Simulated scan of single mutants.
Amino acid sequence: MPKNKGKGGKNHKRGKNDSEGDKRELVFKEDGQEYAVVEKMLGNGWLAAACADGEKRMAHIRGAFRKKVWINVGDVILLGLRDYQEEKADVILKYTPDEARLLKSYGELADSVKINENDEGEGEEEDVDVEFDIDDI
């Protein structure tokens, strides 16, 4: 029986945890682009986003991002606006929380934008302590 010489399988596709994302240069918006915050995941590669210009748009996650870059509610993204459809856009880039904080400090994002840190237990849910005795039940 021959040996497997090719690289493949689930573990190879997953890749190594490189820290190249930290070295990424900050990307600012250009003409035909807009900053947005994800409001709701709609499924099938679509999401509802609140843009910085006050509009609410449906955005499509392009193929290069699917299953590679995970986008969640509250993430700051860069949208490419469509000339032929005002209410739809395409996701170009997802900003990390550090990059979003930098954009906010440079004045690119409004102060009302909340940056999702994805930290567990930070203001999301309150711990409620309920004391009872098993004999009372």
Rank of each mutant, 00 (worst) to 15 (best):
E99S: 06
K40T: 12
W46A: 05
V73T: 12
K56A: 10
A59N: 08
D98H: 14
D53V: 00
K29D: 06
L81R: 03
G74K: 03
G63Q: 06
S19F: 15
D31A: 09
V73R: 13
W46M: 14
D18W: 13
V37R: 04
S19Q: 15
V91F: 02
R66P: 06
L78C: 10
V27N: 08
K56D: 12
D18G: 12
A50V: 10
V27S: 03
E55T: 11
V73Q: 15
L42P: 02
M58E: 12
K67L: 12
A36N: 03
K56Y: 09
N72Q: 12
L102W: 12
V76M: 00
L47R: 01
E86I: 11
K56W: 01
S19R: 15
G43W: 02
N72G: 05
E39M: 09
F28R: 14
E25W: 13
A89R: 04
C51E: 00
G45K: 06
L102M: 15
Y95W: 05
W46H: 10
R57I: 00
K56I: 09
R66Y: 02
W70R: 10
G80W: 00
E20H: 12
M58D: 13
K23N: 11
V37P: 02
L93Q: 06
K94Q: 10
P97G: 05
A89K: 01
R82P: 01
I77T: 02
K23S: 10
A50C: 11
K29G: 06
R101C: 05
M58A: 10
R24Q: 10
L26W: 06
F28L: 14
E99Q: 08
E55L: 09
F65C: 09
L42T: 03
N72L: 15
L79P: 04
D18K: 15
N72W: 08
E30T: 11
Y84I: 15
K88L: 05
N17V: 15
K23W: 03
R24G: 03
W46Y: 14
V38T: 05
A49T: 01
